[in-house]
């Protein structure tokens, strides 16, 4: 319990990491709901990895172009790189998914491993990049500055606001595209907005907690909530709560036993999913 008091203390050295993990934990499932329901889970796997390649490329730019950057500019650069790569990637991948040609799983699998390899290769040969970036890509939640925390909170607040405001349109175009068109909705426009929000959330998550946790939070809380949710409201709220609470408990456990935070969070999410799944097998949900 001592460690819990330490973590909750305002003077806790890693408090920004706790807050950021929780923000990511609450926010990722909100967009993850759409990835799961649209059956774009494999896009959810590849996207954080592509986002991390965006970070690696941004950090390599000064080396390639022969200029130096201050730490603040470096953060701005990686934010732009990560977001740009995420948004462009999801637009391209979703377009290819919708065309339905070729083997989407194979394509996404290839993108995933190549993106992961390129990220590590680029950073391992980059003398300008902080050592911490490599740790981040491996799933370590490192020290997060006040500026990063505020940036993450602001970006995720924007995502939450847009999702709440345009919930009915995003749900309609996801669920029944043809019906949405007959109602005169601009489905491409709404798709673009959704993909932008997913791209922004993923890039913020990868920047703060790395691709491993980002994907874990995008997918597992949604699958967990799906085992018992009776409607969209329950699915969204419970998925978000699972994510946020798991982020906090995961951090606590990692701090207590000196584990890396990322893998602890993801393992905890996996354990919760397994437990809820088994409970539902033993006590099935009563049909209304």
């Amino acid at each position: 319990m001592d460690t819990l008091h330490q973590i909750l203390s305002f003077n806790f050295l890693l408090r920004n990491s706790v807050y950021t993990s929780m923000l990511i934990g609450f926010a990722c499932p909100l967009v993850g709901v759409f990835l799961v329901l649209r059956r774009l889970v494999f896009v959810g796997v590849a996207l954080p990895q592509i986002s991390s390649t965006g970070i690696a490329v941004s950090l390599s730019l000064p080396l390639w172009l022969g200029f130096q950057v201050t730490p603040q500019r470096e953060h701005a650069l990686v934010f732009i790189g990560s977001t740009l790569f995420s948004v462009v990637a999801i637009l391209v991948l979703a377009f290819l998914e919708r065309r339905g040609r070729g083997l989407p799983e194979g394509r996404l699998g290839t993108v995933y491993v190549v993106a992961a390899a390129v990220s590590i290769l680029l950073l391992s040969k980059n003398r300008y990049a902080e050592l911490g970036w490599l740790d981040l890509l491996k799933g370590e939640v490192i020290t997060i500055s006040n500026f990063d925390l505020v940036l993450t909170a602001a970006a995720l607040a924007l995502v939450l606001a847009m999702l709440s405001l345009f919930r009915k349109e995003l749900l309609l175009v996801s669920y029944d595209r043809v019906f949405a068109i007959t109602l005169g909705k601009h489905v491409v426009l709404w798709d673009m907005l959704l993909y932008l929000l997913i791209g922004l959330t993923v890039s913020m998550a990868v920047l703060s907690v790395g691709p491993l946790i980002a994907f874990g939070f995008l997918l597992i809380p949604v699958l967990t909530a799906q085992t018992f949710a009776r409607n969209m409201r329950q699915l969204t709220i419970f998925a978000s709560l699972f994510g946020g609470v798991a982020a906090f408990v995961g951090f606590w456990l990692a701090y207590q036993w000196d584990f890396p935070v990322g893998p602890t969070d993801v393992a905890l999410l996996g354990f919760i999913y397994g437990a809820v799944f088994l409970m539902r097998k033993i006590w099935p949900v009563q049909k209304v």
């Binding site: 799961v36 329901l37 996801s174 029944d176 799906q226 009776r230 409607n231 969209m232």
Partner: peptide
């Protein structure tokens, strides 16, 4: 539409 065309994954009432 044909009801079978709508994805049963969505928890909609």
């Amino acid at each position: 539409p044909q009801a079978v065309r709508l994805d049963p994954l969505y928890p909609l009432t």
